[in-house]
Amino acid sequence: MKSPWLTALFRTRPMHWGSAEMLIMRLLFAAVLLWAGIFWELPEAAAQVPKPEWLAMMDHGGAETMAGPESKSSANGLAAVVPLGWMVDTARSLVIQVLTGLTLILYVAGMAPVLTLLPALILMTGTGALRNSMGDISHHTQLVAMVLLAQWIVYLTAAIRQRRERPLWLRPAHQVQEQAVFWSLLTIGAGYFASGITKLEATDFAWIQRVPSMALQVMKAVWSASYSKGEPVSGFKAVTVPGWILTYPNAARLFFGTGLLLELLGPMLVMGRRRAFWTGLAIIVMHIGISVVMDIEFRNHIFLLAIFAVNIPGLILRSRRKAAATTEADGGKEQPLKTAPQSSA
């Protein structure tokens, strides 16, 4: 027995992109990597992130180190596996920065992405891991790094599969570029869905019930921004908004619950271009709302959604192509405007 309602809900549309719009996507994504993704300037303290434990053990002839709790490693992610301290100076080097920019230009042109994305991938994951090994974990760049990693894996997989007919240093086929965009969207959707289920899991599915305690989190975010920047706090954000949350808890549940729902709708990003557009736009509005209420900005997330999901240049190009196709189908003749019923006399 088939359920037409469920089938319609989960029906997917094929997702295709034109070469021009994918070129614009790569251009904008490369710009995000260069200006907002890679940590070019890390403090010296980042170079002193403790060695990965396996390396420390090797230094001690394979014996476990006698490290006390005070010297316990705070290395995070990649920094816990690979020694990365050297990357602080490397990322600061102008030569490296220019080289990375040049390789990204080749990536934008679609040239050998397995090779041309590699410097950005190494720098982004390395400096990001060092940044997050300094004692606090920031979540502003992981989604960019994950999209970069996903794209690189797509290109690598295609290069391995097509190693005979299309060598690594050539431009990948159009279909491979489409897969790279698709996997970028899939990674973004997975990031939001993961955030949603983490909220549910951490609160035993009572996250929405506990939303009123967000009043304190809003106060905390606003005061933190004030202590960081040395600016006076806005009474609206620090007092009025938390007051509203506590006075109207169900309205607050509706507001913040919508945010949770949007996160859980992340997989809609890969169910057709129209759904990707509306889901992406809705999540961007959510981020702007959070930025207004809590002074917390996730610019990189907004950039990614705008580039891959909302994709305004793609919409413009498609509408132009459609208009051109219609004109061609009409034989290039202008049709009379149907402003009034035509007389049949």
Binding site: G77, L78, A129, Q142, M146, K199, E201, T203, W207, Q217
Partner: peptide, 13 residues
Amino acid sequence: KYPLSNFPMYSNL
């Protein structure tokens, strides 16, 4: 674990 994350911001209310 960088570059991966489950984005746990404001999860533990």
